[in-house]
Design a binder for these strands. Structure first.
Lengths: 341, 341
DNA sequence: TTGTACGCGTTATCAG
DNA sequence: CTGATAACGCGTACAA
């Protein structure tokens, strides 16, 4: 059986385009990157040759020569499977694509040391910008980022000591506002359920916000009303039951993590408990499901997509030469009042 | 105000590591890439120098010379916000990271022409592999992929005419199996609700599977029982109501898309309809929420994470030199029987 | 085991 | 507006 002749699998080079278009490689480069700097005739011939050959520029070579324009950015999120981060990623890619910038994506698994490893791996590809979720990093990570010289955007929390740029909402303010809202509605025994605080400053800030609201209302803390649990719908259900059993007099529960509120609401549905009469339930981050319950869930709207968009904008500003200090951007939040409270 | 002296923001080069370690750049290169090919002493000195300088290798330069080992792969999904694809991405990144390969991510928005644009943009970075979801592509995209010479993995459907490699489950088989299961359970008037078929071969295959199961059971199709809707929880609810109104005698509804079944189930909960007595509900893809309802939803488990893992494996096999034809990999599926049917 | 010479494909620079 | 030339930082091939 005669083998098909192996076509030499090598991408065409700019030089070949140049030969075909009867111009120098330099003119090809210019025609592709700044079309208004070449004559109409040159442009036409280059475009024709590019089409005919099926030329795909080699950004490795370009980036080697012009390190600030690799047309490649990077983002690291704690988990690609979490739809909250997905929304931010969408905002990022949408905004970057308009400028022809591709995105490398990494998943730190909520681990700072894995984050550092990823940062190093990404920097090896010389991205022209890097977005991180969270504002706590290893010392090594900070060193890498600073030496890199590229714009670094931190999201997920407003921090006092940013590496470079910050785009986020305030976890503290948001949790405080929601707690105050619950207190205003007349709930006096308000519980707080969040993810484990250890090593996660976003969660810690939310709990601080909850405490601050209590203090402002001159209600003393009750540690029995503050629970930690890992994520997952079923853990929302579990902590709800736990609270109702140990602290039957609880009026309202503020679930400050992911899908916990949804899990709790489903548990109430299973048991036929009336929400908010028996217990009020509030969430954090407006999931699509939250509004679909017979009793829709009161929650916080965080503009996740917008965070990605703004992050891209800041990055591009830096790449456009703005070397000045850029103040942290607070994208804000909004309480969505529904029937569960 | 005296300015801080600007530290020259340039990443260290291999040469500088070499000087510091008192070896040639070549030895540094080797020490980093294949540590077992250099003497223990050289290795030690290189590692020390790397640490001290904070050297981050430049993969642009490396990839330029060795195009098959850019240590960068690419993936394009229809939507980063869809958790199903997120699971596959997780499988991909997890497997690739073990080999030090980073991942570029793109979002085609379910558009074949946008997919082509993305492919071109990605190829410019000379990835050493590319994963696509879906098996329909523009002619231009196919041409780009073939010329690229890199391993291309298609997922999301088993196709007859793959570009290169395929890792997926069979939409046809899965939908057929679920429909047969419903018929076996005694439901005779089984409706099918899917996403719009136009331009989406996965959806088309699912509907074909549904039809095939009906045919095998010698039940004639009823077009009034087949609905299309775009994604979203609320559309699941809407189509449920639509069906119940126009076709009150419907026994069971097979929702073959995303969150539709969940939306329908929530609508039943709101109206106090008994599932499965009044109507049985089956889904496609086991979401975390699906099992949390008072009546948990019968659904199909598709090993989404595994698809990503296997895709990475195939890619690596190709990169390891396996140029032969590799048969499509069918990762299968599983019916998860719960109380909603 | 280590080092030397050269080239990978593009762009900055500067001269025409 | 266009072209010649010299890097960019690393890996391959070969020689020592």
């Amino acid at each position: 059986m005669p083998k098909k002749p192996q076509i030499p699998q090598r991408q065409a080079r700019m030089k070949e385009v140049a030969v075909r278009a009867r111009v120098s490689p330099m003119s090809v480069s210019r025609a592709l990157r700044s079309p208004d700097q070449v004559s109409a005739e040159t442009l036409r011939r280059v475009q024709k040759a590019v089409r005919e050959i099926g030329y795909v520029p080699n950004r490795l070579a370009g980036g080697l020569k012009a390190p600030t324009r690799t047309q490649l950015a990077a983002a690291i999120v704690p988990s690609v499977r979490n739809s909250l981060f997905a929304a931010t990623l969408q905002g990022l890619t949408d905004a970057l694509r308009k400028k022809g910038i591709s995105l490398m994506l990494g998943d730190s698994g909520y681990s700072d040391t894995d984050e550092e490893t990823l940062i190093a791996a990404f920097l090896a590809h010389r991205p022209c910008g890097l977005t991180l979720h969270g504002t706590t990093h290893t010392a090594g990570a900070r060193r890498l980022l600073q030496k890199s010289g590229i714009p670094v955007i931190e999201t997920g929390n407003l921090t006092e000591r940013p590496v470079d740029l910050v785009v986020s909402y305030s976890n503290f303010d948001a949790a405080k506002a929601m707690t105050e809202y619950l207190l205003r509605r007349g709930y006096r025994r308000v519980a707080f359920v969040g993810l484990p605080v250890a090593g996660n400053e976003r969660v810690r800030e939310r709990r601080r916000g909850y405490y601050a609201a209590l203090a402002a209302a001159e209600i003393s803390r009750d540690d029995a009303l503050v629970l930690e649990t890992v994520g997952g719908v079923e853990n929302g259900a579990r902590t709800l039951l736990q609270l109702m059993e140990i602290q039957p007099e609880v009026n309202a529960i503020f679930f400050a993590g992911d899908v916990l509120a949804i899990g709790a609401m489903m548990e109430c549905a299973r048991r036929g408990w009336d929400v908010p009469k028996r217990v009020a339930i509030a969430g954090f981050d407006d999931w699509e499901i939250s509004r679909q319950f017979a009793t829709p869930i009161t929650t916080l709207d965080i503009p996740r997509y917008r965070i990605g968009e703004r992050a891209a904008e800041l990055m591009l500003r830096r790449l456009d030469g703005d070397k000045g200090k850029i103040a942290p951007i607070d994208v804000g939040f909004r309480i969505i009042e529904r029937q569960s409270t």
